[in-house]
Nucleic acid binder design. Structure first.
Length: 344
DNA sequence: GCAATTGCATGATTT
DNA sequence: AAAATCATGCAATTG
């Protein structure tokens, strides 16, 4: 196997379990909150004891950048939620025991900015969901979702030499990254889906699109996604094609956006781009490279198979890359084009 | 030898 | 109409 290494077989939905089930299970768990808007598992209170978690002893800090790895120091609380590693069937164990955790995580993540305390920057990579064994040789691999009892082994930075140091001060205030371009006809259905998802979470998370951002028509301004105080701006958005979601595991990136917003590729050497999943507790590592094409270049995001599978992405769906305040890192989101019935 | 991955070429589409 | 961009197929390479 090459760049599309899997988190492990269990996470990969071994036995042919469609990855969509994982994703949908997560979303379903989040969305099937009770009539009192309660989750089927406990949540730390906002500004409450959660801040005093023994594992979260970092001094009070301003909001850290959004991005999955940025919540890493707050994760130990999650581990206690997953005490039922189950059964003989690793795949099932993964699917069913972690879904509530995912839901929890998602909820937490979407509310995190409301918490008073944030992980220290130097804890950023101590993601307990990651396996140590996520192969350095496999840049596209999904770090583990946390089987193996959610061990607290950290994800080695495993950054390419091109990457800047990871340490950086926490973000203060919104970013000011501009989205290179969005077609005028952003599918309304996509916006609706997003809005619905976001409002269901009860947080301010919205993507203003061409309809609402006049500057979009001027060119390179646009989609700002807000998580409460944080603002994440789209740097690249692409509707996936058949070949993008085929099992070759590579997504052709729009040249203009790639050159405008992704690190420059001077050499043929690929860059490893770490992208925190906006929904799932995963940091994806994609290979970003190009090849000559006529007088131009084609920019490719490689090792995307697992990302595509996990989100159940198909042709017509969209990949959205957001700027991450952490240099060299990004946030990625797969967006389904067709609204799915989450609750039946 | 085979499967997976990578690199390139070509044609369709868009600008 | 020409150039640029991109989707995709396929050959070459790699493990």
């Amino acid at each position: 196997m090459g760049g599309d290494g899997r988190p492990n077989d269990a996470a990969g939905g071994g036995g042919g379990h469609p990855h969509q089930f994982q994703y949908q299970a997560l979303l379903a768990a989040v969305h099937t909150q009770g009539p009192n808007n309660t989750l089927p598992f406990p949540l730390p209170p906002l500004n409450g004891p959660g801040a005093d978690s023994p594992t979260n002893t970092a001094a009070r800090q301003p909001p850290t950048p959004r991005g999955f790895s940025d919540w890493s120091a707050s994760t130990s609380a999650f581990t206690s939620l997953v005490q039922n590693p189950p059964s003989s069937n690793a795949a099932n164990a993964y699917h069913y025991s972690l879904s509530p955790c995912y839901a929890f995580w998602t909820h937490y993540m979407l509310n995190k900015n409301a918490y008073s305390y944030y992980p220290a920057p130097n804890q950023e990579h101590g993601h307990p969901f990651y396996h140590d064994n996520n192969q350095a040789k496999d840049p596209g691999s999904v770090p583990s979702f946390g089987l193996d009892s959610f061990s607290t082994t950290s994800l080695a930075p495993n950054m390419s030499a091109h990457m800047p140091p990871m340490e950086m001060p926490p973000m203060e205030g919104p970013l000011s990254v501009k989205e290179p371009e969005i077609s005028e006809d952003v599918p309304a259905r996509v916006v609706r889906i997003k809005d619905e998802m976001e409002t269901r979470h009860g947080v301010e998370l919205k993507c203003e699109t061409a309809d609402t951002l006049p500057e979009l028509k001027q060119g390179h301004e646009s989609c700002a996604t807000k998580f409460n105080s944080g603002e994440y701006q789209v740097i690249l958005r692409k509707e996936l094609t058949k070949s993008d979601v085929a099992n070759v595991g590579r997504i052709v990136l729009p040249k203009k956006d790639a050159e405008a917003s992704l690190p420059p590729l001077c050499e043929r050497d690929p860059l490893i781009l770490q992208m925190d999943d906006m929904v799932l507790p995963v940091t994806w590592k994609f290979k970003y490279r190009f090849w000559p094409n006529n007088k131009s270049r084609m920019y490719i995001l490689d090792s995307t198979t697992e990302f595509v599978k996990t989100h159940g992405l198909q042709a017509g769906d969209t990949i959205i890359i957001y700027k991450n305040p952490v240099p060299g890192k990004y946030i990625v989101r797969g967006e389904k084009a067709i609204q799915q019935t989450l609750n039946h």
